[in-house]
Nucleic acid binder design. Structure first.
Length: 448
RNA sequence: GCCGGGGUAGGGUAGUUGGCCAUCCUUUGGGACUGUGGAUCCCAUGACCCGGGUUCGAAUCCCGGCUCCGGCCCCA
């Protein structure tokens, strides 16, 4: 039995790698054109970075381990936390805003499925330092452009967490986790029952989740006003933000505190309206959808997701929003908006038209091998196409056969006659036509 | 963690009422063909996912595991 690759990992053969490289290149070019600069962070980090962001239960779902020095480490399960860690460590004093993009492998210990692997790649961007609608609209438009630029038909949904956050404050703390779960699962029937049970069915929560389309924002604003009136007699400002793992850890406490700090802007729907209006100026079509909650833990307002068809159950190809994470990581708090694109899912649905450049084979008669190597060296210097020379000790015929089977566009034939004349035979593999040319002429002809 | 369907050379496959050296195609290496490729022919390399069990005998039947695919749970 040979050694197999670990579960949930993949090998990328030359063709796979070429396709991935081509798509990545297109995306990176676009990011650079928007003024985003590439960064990278380590493949592993201190486990704490991820537990601070997501709670201790995250440990179950990631590759966490101790190194020989007894340090608790983890293979990164996502890239937002590492990027913000980098920001807090070394970029806090950089001029704002910061526009950053990244591409890297991430790891999660989960059951592999279609579009879900234990090692997967995320491409993303973060815009750090602005809390204005302008920043949010830019980032959402950028995500949208990246997806469509790759040739993928994405369905963009944009939501706003402030309203739901305010409504959750009216719901008894003990019930919030369950209510959030139902919202996330889109279990509207069960949710309605639950709210009725608690006599909270006048909150407008159900309606909020259902409204969409052109008038969605107007109606949401009305709901916000009603909510503001109800909020006058808000009870104690206790306890934490809803979270599936309600735990009395300091991290959860921090999160609660921060979410309360954000409270004054929770009902700032004009802000959200501005984002939507800017998006339409960018020419980006978005569906307003208050069902998007994205965990809620550290996102503060606008959130968005992009879905693609043809991917089965894992159809989300992009997710992001506005968040505050710098404070949690020990820095001075600042607003950021960012997103991550599931690169592997993109690769499952795109078609790549580009093909690798055809090689040029330097084919030689054994007694002039040295000359052939020199010719190859010169051509490698002057051509962008790959240049290959036989290393199998084959004769001229088999070398041409080999050139043909690897799809070479041209063969440069080097034999005693050519060496003597200073002109080599350039053979076009597709047609079989040949001409005698100097090395400069060959380089010139093939370079163009 | 749960449910269902699969695993036969590098790739694609035939073969299960248990029974000859496991079929064919392709790929790869060599040769016919030591200065001109794609064709053809010949030769070679190469597989029953792993471990138990039943049996005179298992690719085939049974059990366990691994793994892939689809779905659930979860999804930072």
């Amino acid at each position: 039995m040979t050694i197999q690759r670990p579960r949930g990992t993949r090998d990328f053969l030359p063709m796979d790698s070429f396709r991935r490289g081509a798509v990545k290149k297109g995306m990176v070019e676009l990011l650079e054109r928007w003024g985003y600069q590439e960064i990278s962070t380590p493949t592993f980090e201190h486990l704490e970075l991820f537990t601070i962001k997501s709670g201790p239960s995250i440990t179950e779902e990631i590759y966490a381990f101790q190194d020989k020095g007894g340090r608790d480490l983890a293979l990164r399960p996502e890239l937002t936390a590492p990027v913000m860690r980098m920001y807090v460590n070394e970029l806090q004093k950089a001029p704002k805003p910061l526009r950053l993009h990244y591409f890297g492998n991430c790891f999660r210990y989960e059951r592999p499925q279609r579009g879900r692997f234990r090692e997967f790649w995320q491409l993303g961007a973060e815009l750090i330092g602005s809390d204005r609608p302008d920043a949010e609209a830019e980032v959402i438009s950028l995500a949208h452009d990246l997806i469509t630029g790759a040739g993928v038909n994405g369905d963009l949904h944009i939501g706003y967490l402030g309203l739901i956050r305010s409504m959750m404050k009216m719901i008894p703390a003990a019930e919030r986790a369950e209510v959030m779960r139902l919202i996330d699962k889109k279990e509207k029937g069960l949710l309605a029952e639950k709210l009725q049970e608690m006599e909270m069915d006048d909150l407008g929560l159900i309606e909020l989740l259902q409204i969409e389309g052109k008038t969605a924002l107007d109606r949401a604003e009305e709901l916000a006003e009603e909510l503001a009136r109800m909020g006058e007699d808000l009870p104690d400002e206790d306890s934490c933000v809803a979270s599936s793992e309600v735990s009395p850890t300091s991290a959860a406490g921090d999160r609660a505190a921060r979410s309360d700090r954000a409270a004054p802007s929770d009902l700032d729907l004009p802000h959200f309206r501005e984002v939507v209006e800017l998006l339409s100026i960018y020419g980006v079509e978005a569906t307003v959808d208050f069902q998007i909650v994205r965990g809620l833990d550290y996102y503060t307002g606008t959130v968005f997701e992009i879905y693609a068809t043809g991917l089965g159950a894992q159809n989300q190809i992009c997710g992001g929003g506005t968040y505050q994470l710098a404070g949690l990581l020990g820095g001075q708090e600042t607003n950021s908006t960012g997103f991550g694109i599931g690169f592997d899912r993109i690769m499952e649905i795109v078609t790549v038209d580009e093909t690798p450049a055809a090689a040029v084979a330097v084919v030689f008669v054994p007694q002039v091998r040295g000359e052939a190597v020199k010719v190859a060296k010169i051509l490698r210097h002057r051509l962008s196409a790959p240049v290959v020379v036989d290393v199998m000790g084959r004769g001229l015929g088999p070398q041409l056969k080999q050139a043909s089977s690897i799809g070479a566009g041209y063969a440069v034939i080097v034999g005693p006659k050519e060496v003597e004349a200073g002109k080599f035979t350039l053979r076009e593999m597709g047609t079989g036509s040949q001409e005698a040319l100097s090395i400069d002429e060959i380089a010139e002809k093939l370079a163009g």
